[in-house]
Design a protein around this nucleic acid. Structure first.
Lengths: 335, 335
DNA sequence: CTGTTAGCGCTTTCAA
DNA sequence: TTGAAAGCGCTAACAG
């Protein structure tokens, strides 16, 4: 392997000068720059990032921690963030974690190894934050989860109001004449997001003086097509009176719709379905999904802006709520 | 930050002994092991991977390079591979690249930095391999692309026969009475996979003595819903006689179907559509997608096995073709 | 503008 | 079974 030393020897300059050229510093003579760049190209030299990061105390890096590989909303947000970061002098490090991983622990390790200037959490479990986020001192933003109540000075948040949004979804179903409503959602004890959305549902039921029986009308599932399909099938057996279903993600809604069709129910003629997230696919599905659209571009934009403000102007961490949109789609019918 | 030195000092042992414990070596006394592990836990010590990899000459690591973040087939394959690697003593490093990035250059850097024992390429451009794969000497497997003709001794491949599969798709359309067939696919000059699939199409047309005019019947698009939607719309204007469309990926097929519906065409009544890949979503879509299913689990399994054989038994790189399956679905109608 | 020098945190001989 | 010491490749003072 060719190292910086080899380049120094071959170019006739010292390692420090080579290092300077490599890092685009301007205190190098054009001649040195030219010569060194030639040698670098000739030897196809690639610097070793381990050594670089081991030594470097800071780097113009933003780390993005994405929780859940198959979360299509996050995929859309990450793409948008990358596009934004590319235009700046910063570099993005993207780390994908399993839904179950501890994102805060991972973040600590990343801080330790890559010394980023800021952190962006796509999804996160408040419990993990309570436990050890205090070990993180750099500016951070929690995206799609509200973080105000956590009370960390360096943790901002940009999120949709999950409670209000879920309430809106159920309102919409009720406005359309539905009274027997099923819910397909995550594990309320383990997923904070699911718990929030569940609370929104309950609020709507209460407001409309409807009773809701989780035992017969809540289908717990992971956020995947397959598991939502299973949950919907079970729900159908437990409660034959259902006329509408709220799924806590669009992916779940699609799994549920497939289950309904396979059981001979038409959507929306027999049973209505409304999803959550507003991923690109929702518009491409048949029927077009009724859904609560999280404005992913705005979520991405504001998160980055708030992070940059914290980093560059040492502004305080703020907690911003991004408005959601109800998308009517074609999957909800009037009763 | 707490380093290995701190642990050494606090535990009363030397850094080398701590290092041994950290790496689960057996030449340490139980007493030392116990004491050091206690201190590590107490201080919440996390080793710095930069330093570790900088020094370590090999690691039980397999690197997976994934080309295209939003490729749903790859997502399925990666998940399967991770599941397999978890059961072994190896660790996976997964790197997501843009569709346009040079995966071989990235791989060289990763070898240099992480010293993996093997490489798995999900998708790849043969041109990049011809250019500099010779710089890579560790066992590697090219997944979903055939690599036999590249002729590298350390590069195996596990792939679907794209030519035969695409030919099969067109055959199926023709068998169902279609003669005016459109294609929505990638850039044949830049995407080797697209070129292969295109060749399969042409073979089928020739075999059936049909003429195909790319100018009026080929819609070039990126592998996304949106771009395929656009391409299908244009195709519809250029050629009103189309009765069927072959899309080079399921994502493209879905984009095309949406475009058709928005132009008032029913699928499959007015126009039939067949996709490619057989992603999970294909089964959940309405209509269920007719598609060429790549057996992603088998692709993942054989790739890993072949790589392991190369690494552990120094077996030669083999080139394996995984059979595809035609899934009838509901999106192709008989004319 | 350039070179010398001292580490970053860890692994790995080599001796003891 | 343990410890001392020599770097891995690079950056960042500091001095020239």
């Amino acid at each position: 392997m060719v190292t910086i030393k080899d380049i120094a020897r071959e170019s006739g300059y010292s390692v420090s000068t080579v290092s300077r050229v490599l890092n685009h510093r301007r205190d190098v003579s054009p001649a040195a720059k030219k010569k060194i760049e030639e040698v670098v190209a000739q030897y196809n030299f690639v610097p070793n990032n381990n050594a670089k990061h081991l030594k470097q105390s800071i780097s113009k890096t933003i780390a993005i921690l994405v929780k859940g590989t198959s979360n299509m909303l996050f995929a859309d947000i990450v793409e948008e963030m990358q596009r934004m970061i590319e235009k700046t002098e910063y570099t993005a490090v993207i780390v994908y974690l399993d839904e179950l991983d501890n994102e805060v622990q991972q973040a600590i390790q990343i801080c330790w190894e890559r010394k980023p200037l800021g952190l962006l959490f796509l999804g996160g479990n408040p419990d993990y934050f309570k436990e050890e986020f205090n070990k993180i001192t750099i500016p951070s933003v929690l995206v799609t989860n509200q973080g105000a109540q956590l009370g960390f000075e360096n943790l901002a948040s940009v999120a949709t109001d999950d409670i209000a949004a879920a309430e809106c979804a159920i309102d919409y179903l009720i406005e359309n004449g539905h009274q027997e409503i099923g819910i397909v959602g995550g594990d309320i004890d383990k997923s904070h997001t699911s718990a929030q959305r569940y609370e929104g549902c309950i609020r709507s039921f209460k407001k409309h003086h409807l009773t809701y029986d989780p035992a017969s009308s809540y289908g717990r599932a992971r956020f995947s097509f397959e598991d939502s399909y299973r949950a919907m099938g079970e729900l159908l057996k437990k409660n034959q009176k259902l006329t509408a279903v709220f799924a806590m993600s669009d992916v779940m809604a699609i799994g549920a719709i497939r289950a309904l069709k396979d059981h001979g129910c038409d959507v929306p003629k027999d049973i209505s379905v409304i999803g959550f997230d507003g991923i690109t696919l929702a518009d491409y599905y048949n029927p077009k999904l009724a859904t609560i659209k999280q404005q992913y571009k705005l979520l991405a934009k504001r998160s980055m802006e708030i992070l940059m403000y914290q980093i560059e102007f040492k502004r305080a961490a703020v907690h911003e709520v991004i408005p959601f949109e109800l998308v009517a789609g074609e999957s909800v019918g009037r009763l």
